[in-house]
Structures are given as structure tokens and as C-alpha cells.
Design a protein around this nucleic acid. Structure first.
Lengths: 245, 245
DNA sequence: TAAAAATGGTGCAAATATGCGGAATTAAGC
DNA sequence: GCTTAATTCCGCATATTTGCACCATTTTTA
């Protein structure tokens, strides 16, 4: 999986310790001496998970946390000193964030990291409301991150070609209705006129093959177009009326 | 058709250009110097389609778009400057909205307008000016979802062919009167002249077979056409000799 | 009551739509 | 320029729809 993890801690020993343990587990780790540096880099190249010490030169961990939260839902693990920060911890969004109390066992932190990442995958992999609904499209067991253009099916990466990506995205964003071939050609291929072409069918064909094991299914509306349905709940009603003109 | 189109753009040249081209195609066009003015007027007298420039004095196009979307499903075409608005475009409801990048060809925009309006008709129905809040047609135990094009009878899926779907939809939307064969041929088959054909009867025949177990029934108006009746309440007066033409 | 007109039903074949595999073309990276 | 991936094109097999011919049944008209 090769996840990228950012660590901000002013203590070199702790940073290197964590780096060592995490890298041993196959993670890609970058350390920062303070939160501001981390934030600066993160703004341009996001990571999969962030570990923040609360006590740091410059802005403290909670400040950085809030800054990051303004634009990202990346999971964040806070490193706190004893109980002193208890009050602040209460305010954390425990859904996507977590905390660890110093001193801590590196082994335990590593397993915490793993569980947080796993949970994150579960959240993105299932139908559950999630904060960043503009950037993430979900349908059944398929998740599309529109910012990173990453697509997953049942948590595993689903490689899509550009056209397939667009088509699937369009179908998902119009999950509540059937879309006609003409509309697909117009929106995705940009054909103004309804040229007699079957490129849409071709792309649907390839897409169907790739998501054949998914709960999501592209059903045909005979004489009209297509519609995305979820096998797990709408399977009983496939055939139905269609078209016009 | 004589559709009404509203345009909001602070650039007089663009507004007049569009106005000219669209009016040449038979559309009725009203221009506004900004989105707020357009919104104000639209609130009282709706249009069939709206063209919004993104960059405008006052609220920008996306803001106006959202305001309009709170109460209406009128198709909207956004005019954006280059790729700068790419992110926002992502957030559009690509189903009923569309966008155009400046600079654009008026000819292409006109054809886009046409295709959008046509699609809107397909979805909303040929009757035209009605917000699609009645996307679901019901008659007796038959339900037609015009968005998904799913048809159910007594809760179970009712598979209809394109022609049957159209015919049933037309009958339901005209439940309060009898429709003549000539009218059906005109509206559904598009036969301008009253060709001596019995295709309408064929489709009625097939439809009757499929809904034979339903409370809905297609009764024949001898010498004229058909009318949809509900067995459960209007059963007493089925055959009667209405006639005219 | 018989004949004519209108409608309903059955079956079939032409027309249309869709799915699918693979070739051909185009685009993209090196 | 060459190699690979992506897209489109091309037939063909299959599925579905639809119009029509033909006959039966009902209704009207004479």
C-alpha cells in the first residue's frame, strides 16, 4: 500500500524512533521539526496520515490540526503529554482523529496507525456519510476521490481509463435517474449532434467488465440509455419501462 | 416552440451576441446585466432555460445557480472563463446543468441550448413548462417514475417497451379525457398526417395485456380513441358511445 | 338480419437495439 | 520513431420491439 505519513515533533529522538518503526512496516515517512513546516509541505503534497506532537515550537499541535482540517480530512494522530491536554482532546473529532499519550510504545503506535488507516479505508469504502462529500463520490462499494482521481472498489484500487472514469463519475452523480445515450455523448464526448455512434456503449462495455464483481451495476434502459443500480437493494427490479421517441 | 431564455452577463456585447443568435433560432430572449437582476425576475416569471456568466458584479454565477436550484429545476448553462473555474464545475449537477468555456462559438452555444432543451423535454415530458416536481405519475395501482423510467404495477416492476411507456404516460397525464387515435399518432409516433395506420391499436393491445391485472384499464371510445379509467371507481361507465371527430 | 365499419387477437418477419470479441486507429510515453 | 495503452470501429450473434397481414368479434347502419 505504501502509505505516506508525516510526523511533526521537535524531539529528534522520537521522530527518528517513529520513523524507524513505521518504515519497518512499509510506510513512507517524512519528519518535520515543527507543525508549521509540516503544514507547509502538506498543503502542496498531501499525506495519508499525520502524527502531530502537541507541544511544539511555533504553533502547537491543536492549531495545526485545525488548519489542516480546514481543507483536508486526512486522519491525524495527536501525541499528548500526560493528562494535561485532556480538555483539548475532548474537542477532537474522534471520528477521524486519534491521540496517544506520552510516553508511548512505538509498537503500539504503529498498530494504532494501522487501525486508523484501516478505519479510514472502511469509511471511504462503505456507504457512510463523510465530510468531504464534494470530493468523494460513493456508490455501493465503489469510491471515487475526485481530487486524487483515485477509484476503489471494495477498498481495492480500481484502475480506470479517462473515459471510463468520466462515465462512472457521471453515472454516480446521476444515480437517481436514467441517462440517455445522447446525454452521455453530449456531456462526456461533447458531441453536439447525436452522431450515430456507439462509443458510449463501448465504454459501458469496458466499465461493466471492470466492475463486474462490484455491487454497483450498470443496467440498460432499453431504447434509452443506462442507469446505475445497487445490486444489494435494487436487484429485484431490473426490467422496467423505458424510452420515448 | 418559442422557449424563453434568460441571460445574465455584464458584458453587453456578449449578451447582445447571444440574444441575436438565439432569437434567430426562434427563441424568446431576455438579457440581464447581472445575476441578481435575473434571479429577481425569474422568481416571478420563470424561463425555460438560463445562461449565467460566472464572473459578474454582485453575486457570481455559482451563487445565483445555487439560489435558483433551491426552487427550480430549470436547465442552466454556465459561462466560465477558461479552466479557472474547473473545480466549481465539478460541483455542478451535471444532469440538468451544463457549462461553456469562454471564448465560445455562438453557433455551438445555440446547438447546446437546443440539445439541453430537448433533453429536458425527454425527462420532463412533452408538455413542456412544468417543473419536474411531478416526476412520478400515478394512476390506480400503476406508478411511473419518469426520472428512472421505472414502472411498477402493484409494487412490482412492469416491463414496458419504449412505445408502451410513452403511450401509458400520455394516457395517464390525460386521464381526465379521451384521446383520439390521431392525437396519439401525432404525439407519440409523430405522424403529422392522419395516416391510416393501426399502430396505436397495436400498442394499446399490448399494453392492455400487460396491465390486465391492474385496476387501470384502457377503455375504448368507439370511433374515436381511448381513455384510461380506474376499475375500482369508474367501473360503472365503461363503454359508452362517445363520438366525434 | 345482413352487410359494412371498427376494433381485438394471433402470429410472424422486418427493423431496431444491444452485447461482445477483436481489429484498426489514435493517443501517450519513452 | 517505437511501444504500449486507450479509444474507436467493425461485424456478427442475440434479444427486443414493432408494424402488418389475416381473421374473429363487436358495433353500427341500412
Amino acid at each position: 500500500m505504501n502509505k505516506l505519513i508525516y510526523i511533526a515533533d521537535d524531539d529528534d529522538n522520537i521522530r527518528n524512533l517513529l520513523k524507524t518503526f513505521l518504515e519497518r512496516e512499509g510506510f513512507h515517512v517524512t519528519g518535520f521539526p515543527n507543525g508549521d513546516k509540516l503544514f507547509e509541505v502538506f498543503s502542496n503534497s498531501p499525506a495519508d496520515l499525520i502524527i502531530l506532537d502537541v507541544m511544539m515550537p511555533g504553533h502547537d499541535g491543536f492549531f495545526i490540526l485545525k488548519e489542516i482540517r480546514k481543507t483536508s480530512n486526512v486522519p491525524i494522530i495527536m501525541l499528548t503529554a500526560k493528562d494535561s491536554d485532556a480538555d483539548y482532546i475532548q474537542g477532537l473529532d474522534m471520528g477521524s482523529d486519534d491521540y496517544f499519550t506520552k510516553p508511548f510504545s512505538p509498537v503500539k503506535l504503529v498498530s494504532k496507525v494501522k487501525s486508523v488507516l484501516k478505519r479510514q479505508e472502511e469509511i471511504t469504502g462503505k456507504t457512510g456519510d463523510k465530510p468531504d462529500n464534494d470530493a468523494v463520490y460513493e456508490f455501493a462499494d465503489i469510491v471515487i476521490n475526485r481530487k486524487t482521481k483515485e477509484t476503489t472498489m471494495q477498498g481495492k484500487p480500481l484502475p480506470l481509463t479517462p473515459n471510463e472514469y468520466q462515465l462512472l463519475t457521471y453515472l454516480i452523480s446521476n444515480r437517481d435517474r436514467a441517462v440517455s445515450r445522447a446525454e452521455l455523448l453530449d456531456k462526456i464526448w461533447g458531441y453536439e449532434t447525436q452522431v450515430e455512434t456507439r462509443v458510449a456503449d463501448d465504454t459501458v462495455k469496458r466499465l461493466r467488465k471492470k466492475i463486474s464483481k462490484s455491487d454497483a451495476k450498470i443496467s440498460t434502459i432499453w431504447g434509452y440509455g443506462f442507469r446505475l443500480v445497487d445490486r444489494s437493494d435494487e436487484d429485484t427490479e431490473d426490467d422496467d419501462g423505458d424510452n420515448q421517441e
